[in-house]
Computed example of a mutant assay.
Amino acid sequence: MVGVNDLQNLLHIGRNKAYELLRNNEIRSIKIGRDYKIPKRCIIDYIYNGLGIQNNNALCYNIIDFKSGLSIKGE
């Protein structure tokens, strides 16, 4: 898992764009309180989708905010 700063460095994007991708669920993430944690697999899935590559092995799950309860959605 990586944080937002690592996501920025990996994708060569700014802070605002990183948070936009996470808020819009374009990159699946785990939100714990105010912090986002992003499984590396979710970043790989995002890159594959951007390249138009069909990824039949998409294993990324979205776990939403532990404070408000646990919700898991698979792709």
Rank of each mutant, 00 (worst) to 15 (best):
G52M: 05
K40E: 07
G52W: 11
D6L: 06
I64H: 11
L10M: 07
H12P: 08
R41E: 15
N55Y: 10
N62C: 03
Y46S: 09
C42S: 15
S68T: 13
K67P: 14
K17Y: 13
Y46C: 10
Y48T: 05
G3P: 01
V4W: 08
K37P: 02
Q8M: 09
I44G: 06
I13V: 10
E26A: 04
L22W: 07
N56M: 11
I30Y: 04
S68H: 15
E26H: 05
I64A: 08
E75C: 12
Y19D: 07
I43F: 08
I47Y: 01
I72S: 06
L51K: 11
N16P: 06
R15D: 14
S29E: 09
N62T: 03
N56D: 15
F66P: 02
K37H: 06
I27E: 01
D6C: 07
K73F: 10
N56I: 13
C42E: 14
L21R: 06
K37G: 01
R41A: 15
L59S: 13
Q8T: 05
N49P: 00
L22S: 09
P39Y: 01
E75T: 09
G52R: 03
A58D: 09
L70A: 11
Y19M: 02
V2W: 02
N5Y: 10
L21T: 10
I13E: 09
V4G: 03
L21V: 11
I27Y: 00
I43Q: 10
I47W: 04
G33P: 09
C42W: 06
M1C: 04
L7I: 00
P39A: 03
D6H: 08
L21I: 12
G69R: 07
F66L: 14
M1N: 08
E20M: 06
R28F: 00
S68E: 15
I44D: 15
N16Y: 10
N9Q: 08
G74S: 07
A58N: 06
A58H: 00
N57M: 13
S71Y: 15
C42V: 07
D45C: 07
L59Q: 12
N16C: 09
K17E: 12
F66W: 10
I63S: 03
Q54R: 03
A58K: 04
G52S: 08
Y19N: 05
A58W: 00
Y61V: 15
L59H: 10
Y61N: 11
N57E: 14
L7K: 00
N55M: 07
I63Q: 01
Y61K: 11
I32H: 04
A18H: 10
I38L: 02
N62H: 10
E75Q: 13
I47D: 04
N56L: 13
V4E: 01
S68P: 09
Q8Y: 02
Y46H: 09
L22E: 03
L10E: 05
I53Y: 05
D6N: 09
L22Y: 07
M1I: 05
L70V: 15
N49T: 01
K40M: 09
L59K: 11
I27T: 01
A58M: 00
F66C: 05
Q8I: 02
S68R: 13
I38M: 02
I30D: 01
R15Q: 15
G14C: 09
S71M: 13
G3F: 01
L22R: 06
R41M: 13
A58G: 01
Y36R: 00
K40Y: 06
K40W: 03
